[in-house]
Simulated assay, not measured.
Amino acid sequence: MATLSMVRTRRQSGVRRAPRINFGQCFGIEIERESDGWLIRIPEIGGETYARRREAIEVVARECIAARTGIPNGYIGVIATEIS
């Protein structure tokens, strides 16, 4: 029986692989610019939340979805549509 220290692994030198993206569920979100941030609507769950910066929209939306649905944050994908 081989122990972990006896098992050899091969490294592919010079080859970088893109990380695999696994989603449990993907949600469409609607974003709307307001005077001091972004309103985020999540129609599939009837939720709304708010982000101060554009960069934070995805994280805030995923946290809201995770809190309302119980789906782990790492398994949630979002696709944003900006509403004028």
Rank of each mutant, 00 (worst) to 15 (best):
C26R: 12
I65F: 01
M6R: 12
S13K: 15
R20P: 04
I40H: 07
A2G: 04
T9L: 11
C64L: 14
G74F: 05
G46E: 13
R10Q: 08
M6W: 08
G46F: 13
G14P: 00
G28F: 03
I65S: 08
V15E: 13
G74E: 15
R10E: 10
A61Y: 11
R11L: 07
C26G: 08
G37F: 13
Y75W: 12
T3S: 15
I71N: 03
I71T: 03
E58R: 14
T3Q: 06
R52I: 14
I21C: 09
R8I: 06
E55T: 15
T9W: 05
G37C: 00
I31K: 12
A18S: 05
R68A: 05
G47I: 01
R33K: 14
P72I: 13
R33F: 06
I45N: 08
A61F: 08
G74L: 00
R33M: 09
G28R: 03
I76G: 01
R54S: 08
E34N: 02
G28M: 04
I40S: 04
F27K: 01
E48A: 08
Y50C: 06
E44T: 12
S13Y: 12
E63C: 14
V15A: 07
R17M: 11
I83S: 04
G77C: 04
E44I: 05
G24Q: 12
I65V: 08
P19W: 07
M6E: 15
I45D: 09
L4S: 09
R62Y: 02
E55V: 11
D36I: 03
E63S: 12
N73I: 01
G28S: 12
E55Q: 15
R53S: 14
E48D: 10
E55W: 08
I31H: 03
A56P: 00
I31M: 06
F23M: 10
R8S: 06
T3D: 14
M6Q: 14
V60Q: 00
A56L: 11
I76E: 05
R17G: 03
E58G: 05
V78K: 00
R10L: 14
G47E: 14
E30V: 09
A66S: 15
G70T: 01
M1D: 08
E34T: 09
V60P: 10
V7Q: 13
I29H: 01
V15M: 13
I65M: 01
R41Y: 06
E55F: 10
G24N: 13
G14A: 07
R20T: 14
E48P: 02
R41P: 00
A2T: 02
A61D: 06
L4N: 12
G24L: 08
I40C: 06
T81H: 07
M1R: 10
I45C: 10
W38C: 03
N73S: 05
